[in-house]
Write a protein that binds this DNA or RNA. Structure first.
Lengths: 337, 337
DNA sequence: CTGAAAGCGCTTACAG
DNA sequence: CTGAAAGCGCTTACAG
């Protein structure tokens, strides 16, 4: 980096003090119109670019949000990133996005880097294995507000924005019941994630509502890898009376279910209905789609998460943050074909 | 932000100077082992976290790269982001990723923000419409090195990393010729992009090599929207003798071509072979895939771009950067099914 | 091996 | 309406 033009350079050129130049450029009311114009003219001609690094240091504020997500290859998270960036841009904030790649250690490292860089706030979708919340607790202790989204932590003392998962699960089930299904399996996400539990509860509630007995062999926990889904499918299809429909934790699992059927039970691929969370753009290209998706509105979740973060950043005293906020974004049933 | 522990706090606790504490923590050889241990002990107990914002300011270096890409929803770019992050992490650098959303004005804004924040270097895949390079020229003038990737600028005085596009195009064509096609159409990208031209040249060269006359009505310029691809398809299929294969600028176009055929020419969907750039992960779920993909190794491109950037950042004098470097990453043909 | 001092570029409370 | 001064937390050349 070459040395750029500084306030001092402009000040000495115009025989003014640095303070006056600073105030003139920031539009301070105390500065005369004439002075402001002289300063702005030179600043423009000399192509003055303020050194934000110096401001950050002086103001003890970086105007930067940290955003931690598991994986950018999952478009669900990219939509949320877009929501966060939208709000941040409006507030003249920068966003640094980091991927944890579902790795706890890496997640901790990222938090550490964000503290060192003194971000003003953090938004995070935790990894599927995160159970120790101490690194996030540390952020809050230091005075950096944190908002969780999509994957809410078990501890309710944190702020979070999530989909209305129970309602979404019930919508999915309602859709399947309406299509006449009674034998509905559920592929739940890792039990370590609270979202998995909540979606499972929605499944159970829907069964109860329709007076269908819960069948334990219809419930499978998967870890998002095709292998685990294939294994679950294989044990399901071996049952005397296999399910006629499957409600999945998310539609990437649905895709693997459909792949499995295409390979091993091609006769069933058009009879077994699959519904899961996540309305992915790529569905438009598929011949065999999930029957429906529960759209979580991840863009909206990003927006809400950022708003919640800004509102807690604007609170003066940390005491006010004691009342944690939980925002639920409604889900929408999207029927395909 | 609460005030954190500073070097001064540690220094006064231990009755040392701030300089000694600073040097102890950075492992300076001049500091005695005993002192280092005492300092590290307190730093650990008090949970000292260095203020990077202060270092950035002091050192006039932010240890941060700016990465500008058109769109994170395109997984091609996400893979490149991962490559850049890999190298950056190794060099202990942060990366701030910003999306231009293919919008020139937004791209200029991002460059401006990156200058203000004094990033140490910038990697960019320009929008499909970028023709005015002055904002990037400005970066370089200020002393911030820039590396372009994927979409290389026309002006050869810039550093860039691109796929070996001509070779990739020829590989695609070679594959189609081997399958017996002679009537091969080309859907080229926006003429404003140099990559479009180069891939087109590969197409022409391959035709020449196989002594096939270029048929002007087989060449269509599209803008990546389904509408423009549909329009091109419709005029193609009206020809007396339509093509038996299509080489596309990229495989998102191929997907739209296949969608078009499924809708309007279902008989041809299995006879017309489509090949394009970009090996997308989602292909595994498709029943009707492109016949093959040209894999651009975008992850590798990200790696190479970051390496090139670091090497120019390490050059002392800007004069040394006058010799711009162009790196070509080989493409690979991937046959589907 | 340790420390005093300067300084990075900015903002702001205060004095005039 | 303008300016002098302090200070944000760190690093580093220099002196001892």
């Amino acid at each position: 980096m070459k040395k750029g033009i500084t306030l001092k350079d402009i000040a000495s050129k115009l025989n003014m003090s640095i303070s006056t130049v600073s105030k003139a450029l920031s539009g301070d009311v105390s500065i005369s119109k004439a002075t402001k114009e002289r300063v702005q003219k030179i600043a423009g001609e000399w192509n003055y670019i303020p050194n934000e690094a110096a401001r950050h240091f002086k103001l003890n504020k970086t105007f930067t949000l940290g955003l931690i997500i598991p994986d950018l290859l999952d478009q669900f998270f990219v939509l949320a990133v877009n929501g966060v960036e939208e709000v941040a841009a409006f507030e003249k904030y920068n966003v640094i996005v980091s991927q944890s790649h579902e790795d706890i250690e890496h997640e901790n490292q990222i938090v550490d880097i964000m503290i060192r860089n003194r971000v003003d706030g953090v938004i995070v979708a935790i990894t599927k294995n995160t159970d120790d919340m101490s690194s996030f607790r540390k952020l809050i202790d230091i005075g950096i507000p944190v908002v969780f989204f999509a994957r809410s932590p078990l501890d309710p003392s944190f702020n979070y924005v999530s989909a209305n998962n129970e309602d979404g699960a019930m919508k999915a089930m309602e859709f399947l019941f309406k299509k006449g299904h009674k034998q509905i399996a559920h592929f739940m996400g890792p039990a370590s994630m609270s979202v998995s539990q909540i979606r499972y509860e929605g499944y159970v509630k829907a069964l109860e509502k329709h007076h269908v007995r819960l069948n334990a062999s219809f419930i499978k926990e998967v870890d998002f890898t095709p292998a685990s889904t294939y294994k679950a499918m294989s044990s399901l299809m071996k049952l005397k009376s296999p399910p006629t429909a499957i409600f999945t934790f998310k539609n990437y699992i649905s895709l693997d279910v459909i792949q499995y059927l295409k390979k091993y039970n091609p006769a069933e691929v058009n009879t077994i209905d699959v519904v899961g969370f996540g309305n992915l753009p790529l569905f438009q290209y598929l011949d065999h789609k999930p029957a429906a998706s529960i759209d979580e509105n991840s863009y909206t979740m990003g927006i809400e998460a950022a708003r919640l973060l800004f509102s807690s950043m604007k609170l003066e005293t940390p005491e006010q943050t004691i009342n944690s906020q939980h925002i639920k974004v409604p889900c929408k049933l999207v029927i395909h074909q």
